[in-house]
């Protein structure tokens, strides 16, 4: 379980360009949850993620991962990184080793595991991201395709077997096919590892389809916290923040606004089509 209580983070404190990146944010994420975080660029999302694995410290407030308070002074950073894996945006830009296997092994090695354990985890992580360890392990990461590089980078974090896996826009810049594949892979990992997965995305359809819990961040504040149905049900408020519900739901809302007697507003295409069929079939 992750418990974030009243965290506040201020950049350039006391200087003329002072800005509040996070303002009294509190929420809880249950074990086994697949949580989505939405909010546009500059809303404070990235700052929040970096707090969750100790890269940034809050100016006030606490974050508990399990029973550990990771905001406490002198807390063991390596322990936090082991518990919470963070995959940054465009993670393939962080690849540096000669071979795929060596790159994936970087994290586990830093954890001080035995060579045997490191090797086992590397193979496991590569299989989890859908790459054959035999075939890819010896290749240079730089000769892979964009989608494969991204998988390798994600494997590098997965190999640390984090209890919480955070992914910041893992599908940014990918084409539709690779996008679908990478999301499927993240779902697989979540199901196999029973970890907490946190997905940051601009793609509302993905968030609606994959997450059981959605957090909305706007201007450094947590403004919504609930199930996808609850959050996307408040589409008017989302629109005001420059966010939206999934496209199918937005389309239904638009029909409703122009007088079409739409009842329910489902979040997926098939559900939305059923509502339209009901109306047309009257």
């Amino acid at each position: 379980m992750i418990k974030v209580s009243n965290i506040t983070h201020v950049y350039s404190k006391g200087l003329p360009d002072e800005s509040v990146a996070l303002d009294d944010v509190s929420f809880t994420i249950e074990d086994g949850s697949f949580t989505g975080i939405i909010g546009h660029t500059g809303s404070g999302k990235s700052t929040l993620l970096q707090h969750l694995n100790g890269l940034l410290k809050p100016d006030s407030g606490h974050i508990f991962v399990g029973d550990t308070d990771i905001t406490e002074k002198g807390s063991n950073l390596l322990e936090i990184r082991r518990k919470v894996g963070l995959v940054f945006q465009y993670p393939e830009y962080q690849l540096f080793e000669e071979t795929v296997a060596m790159d994936v092994a970087f994290g586990p090695k830093n954890l001080g595991l035995s060579d045997e354990e490191v090797r086992a985890r590397t193979v496991e992580a590569l299989e989890l991201v859908g790459l054959d360890a035999e075939e890819f392990g010896g290749k240079s990461p730089f000769e892979l395709s964009g989608g494969q590089k991204r998988r390798v980078a994600i494997a590098g974090v997965v190999a640390m077997r984090p209890e919480v896996l955070i992914l910041d826009e893992p599908t940014a810049g990918l084409d539709p096919k690779t996008h679908k594949d990478v999301l499927g892979m993240i779902n697989d990992i979540h199901e196999k590892q029973h970890n907490i997965t946190i997905l940051v995305s601009h793609n509302m359809s993905d968030v609606a389809a994959m997450c059981d819990h959605v957090l909305v961040i706007n201007k450094g504040k947590l403004v919504m916290d609930g199930t996808p149905e609850e959050v996307f049900g408040r589409a008017d408020e989302l629109n005001e923040m420059g966010l939206s519900a999934p496209p199918a739901a937005e389309f239904l809302r638009r029909l409703k606004a122009s007088g079409v007697p739409i009842g329910r507003i489902p979040l997926d295409v098939a559900g939305a089509a059923d509502e339209i069929i009901k109306v047309l079939g009257r």
Binding site: D175, P176, K177, P247, A248, F251, V269, A270, A272, A273, D274, I276, I277, L280, G281
Partner: peptide, 20 residues
């Protein structure tokens, strides 16, 4: 060829499948 289909086309497919 693994390309996405616009949302309106996908909705239209479902609607057509229902015999409309």
């Amino acid at each position: 060829i693994n390309l996405d289909i616009p949302i309106a086309v996908r909705l239209a497919e479902h609607i057509r499948a229902a015999g409309i």
